[in-house]
Each structure stands twice: as C-alpha cells, then as structure tokens.
Design a binder for these strands. Structure first.
Lengths: 150, 150
DNA sequence: TATTGTTATACTCTATAACTATA
DNA sequence: TATAGTTATAGAGTATAACAATA
C-alpha cells in the first residue's frame, strides 16, 4: 500500500500524533483491553464483571453503591453485572438488617473459586505483557496521572 | 459512607485489582481521555477527529483507507469523521488521477491553522498531566506493550 | 478477484434522568 | 430531603457485512 499522491512535504519521521502520550496510551490500552477480554472470556467474565467479582471477594458485603464508588462507575451500570454474577451463583444478595433498601453483595464459594482462577489467568497474562518492563514504575506513573484530574 | 456489614476478613490494604497494571491503566486512561475531550471540545474536535486531522496535516494526500490503517480503526468509522472535517472546510477531498475510486484527503489552510492551535492546547495539557513524570520512559513502555499483541 | 468508499447495522461501554422504597 | 437499587434511555466508540464503482 503506497501513498497515492506524494504530497508529503517532508519525510516526517516523528509524526505529531506519536508525540502525545495520550495517543500512545490509547493504543497501548486498546491492546491490553482486547487481550484481557480474551483472557477473561473463557471464564464468562468481562472486565467490569471481573473487577466487580474481585472487589467483592476482597471486600465481602459491599453494597452496589459502594461497589460503584470503588470502581468509579455509575450505579445503573452495575445492575446487569450484579444480576449476572448472582444468576451464575457467584455472589448472593444478603439483606442488610440496618437498612432495608440495601443489599450486601457476598461472594459464594463458587465465586471465590472462579475469582482465584481468573486472577491467576490475568496475572499470567500480565507477566507476559509486561515482561522486561519496569511494571512498578509504570504503575506508579499511572497512579500519578489518575489522581491528577482537571 | 461506611461499609454496611463488617464481613471483611482482613484489612486487605492492597486490593487485588490494584495489583493489575491493566486496571490502573484503564483508570488512568479514563482520566486522560475525559481530560483531553475537554481540551479538544473548544476546537470542535473529538479524539478521533483530532487524530485524523493531525495525521492529514502530517501526511497530506492520505486516502481514507490509509488513514484507517494508520489510526488502527475500521474504514466505516472514518466516514463521519472525514465528512465532518470537509463540511467545516478543514480538509478537501481531491480526486486521485491514477485511481478513480480513491480520494486524497488534503488539509486546507484553515485545517492546518486549527490543527496547530489544537496541537498547542494538547501539548500544554500533557505538560500539566505529565509534570514530574518521566514521560519518555512512560511512552517507551507503552510502545512495547502496543507491539505485544496476542 | 480485490480494493475504495460507503451504508446499514449492532454491540460494548458508560452516562443521565427519573422512579420506588426506604431512610 | 436524601439515599439504594432500579428502569429506561442515549451517546460515544468501534466492529462486521455487504454493496457499487473501479482496479
């Protein structure tokens, strides 16, 4: 595939777009995301469902609202996720004695088991993806960016 | 907002999710993306439109298919983008003598001007966002990830 | 046969508005 | 009033299938 017209004024070896970390990040994140989707698919999990399950195994009893705040998504987006997890017997919705509106989300044994397996697969995936890279430094940089809204 | 049930078995100070670079990257990228959208909005540009315009200023005469390959998106997704850019007089579609199917996409003076202004705003934004960080190292790491599909 | 640009379409992700039942 | 969970909905973003014109 050659360029149809040679209108380029220079052999611009450093395209402007590539000078933006935001652009490179988007491209890198696309790779990670589609890769990760492939890793999670065999478990019947998508990224948000996986994140929710892991969070609930870490902190059993969270409500939907707490979970939404933790994962930084809006509450309505968790409805389908929680329903999916419950329908598959991975979590239970437990009545909260002190607040009849709320439902504590608790992982079942099956949920904890699936979570452990999926975590292992994701860990293996990241080990491959970040081999040779300073993952700690990368994560630290990402955290700085994350807390720099505005 | 206190946890409704104290079912947590431990004061798990390092949540499993946070151990994944993919998760941190998603969160960091969300910040960058919404931030960047705010920077580009005053110019009437969205991320993909901005990327397309910058690419065309860098390499005038690219066809839609070339642009799609360059930006790693499917061709149909550029139709609306190119139409938008042309309707606003930022690019022109020039007939290609050697291939009557293709149309060379060429930025106009207005397009180059808007591109320069938007590039400046995005650069300023990134300077703020990455202040104190080793942007070069971060970009290098992102590139390694990007080329590590599968 | 293959490719360009295009249409139509669909799916994912995620946000807002508004309802209900509680608080 | 405010909050928890939910419904309905909408808007990005992006992908696939298929078509007409051209190669």
């Amino acid at each position: 595939m050659a360029a149809p017209l040679s209108l380029s004024r220079q052999a611009s070896s450093a395209p402007s777009l590539e000078r933006f970390a935001g652009y490179r990040m988007k491209r890198a994140f696309n790779v990670i995301q589609s890769d990760l989707a492939g890793v999670l698919a065999p478990f019947g999990l998508r990224m948000l469902t996986f994140s929710a399950l892991v969070s609930l195994v870490d902190e059993p009893g969270l409500t939907s609202a707490h979970l939404a705040a933790l994962l930084d998504v809006e509450r309505p987006n968790l409805v389908a996720v929680v329903e999916d997890l419950e329908r598959r017997g991975l979590i239970r919705r437990v009545a909260v004695p002190t607040d009849r509106r709320a439902r504590a989300l608790c992982p079942t044994k099956a949920g904890r088991d699936l979570c452990r397996e999926a975590l292992g697969a994701v860990q293996a995936h990241e080990a491959r993806l970040f081999a040779g890279l300073d993952k700690g430094a990368l994560m630290a940089a990402l955290d700085v960016i994350r807390t720099r809204q505005g």
